[in-house]
Amino acid sequence: MAGAIASRMSFTSLKRKQPKTFTVRIITMDAEMEFNCEVKWKGKDLFDLVCRTLGLRETWFFGLQYTVKDSVAWLKMDKKVLDHDVPKDEPVTFHFLAKFYPENVEEELVQDITQHLFFLQVKKQILDEKIYCPPEASVLLASYAVQAKYGDYDPSVHKRGFLAEEELLPKRVINLYQMTPEMWEERITAWYAEHRGRMRDEAEMEYLKIAQDTEMYGVNYFLIRNKKGTELLLGVDALGLHIYDPENKLTPKTSFPWNEIRNISYSDKEFTIKPLDKKIDVFKFNSSKLRVNKLILQLCIGNHDLFMRRRKADSLEVQQMKAQAREEKARKQMERQRL
């Protein structure tokens, strides 16, 4: 009897100690995973858990994205996960995505996992036509994507039709030419054969080096109105803020590099960009919603921080990571030579 009471007591105290949890689904560019998240967890707790699970150390480029009322939002690190305006039906779903882009992929992306996630995200943006890519660059990119996936070209393995099921080119590009799928495959394969000897990480890096030269790469666009009520697009990227004609997302009418901006602020729906040079006019605009203003400001702060950080010496952590990556690369090369 006493034993039964004791065991019941310990069971209830154990039960009381267990924290309340909820299920979270995280969707990355190539995987889905579920976690039990404590109700009290902040954004950072969940974000760190995801990064640890992925083995990702270059965390500063990434965020957990969700959609609220048709607009994109990112989980705040210092706010409780459940205090965000996320649909509370379980599993609560977030997309683990790159939020900020490097200025130079080759210099800044160190770990293979970071490069791979960027490669997958940028490839999707190009195929979904979120990033404009000219036809010739699309074919070259496709050939690197094939090298990354299939390894070296081997005509005895990669026979006619081997790319038939692959999505390799934006539809817009395909529609510009009177070419059959076989003709596209032939052209892509001819370039794929040129990449012989490139490992997956190298092919993905070549892909990113080409993609980063396209005008829309890494730009977040927002519809705004200037003080006269004219519709414009605001672009936020690694280099600064850009103002576009809504008909032309490729070439900005004006740009404000981060090092030439004194201050960015908003009150209610009005945004103000104050340039450092007092001779240049202050630029004021309105966005559609307060929520969008918050996102614009978040992206400005994050991109500005990274812009400043790039212009200082690497932190110890990054130095160490780069040294490790160099060692790893040398080791892989030795291995390949040996084989």
Partner: peptide, 27 residues
């Protein structure tokens, strides 16, 4: 065999030329 050296712009020009004969008149 060492990988054949490719210059990016030369590659793009070559691809552009190979696609051009098949361009839609509207394109």
């Amino acid at each position: 065999n060492p990988p054949k050296f490719l210059t990016y712009h030369k590659a793009l020009a070559e691809i552009r030329n190979s696609l051009q004969p098949f361009a839609n008149s509207s394109g």
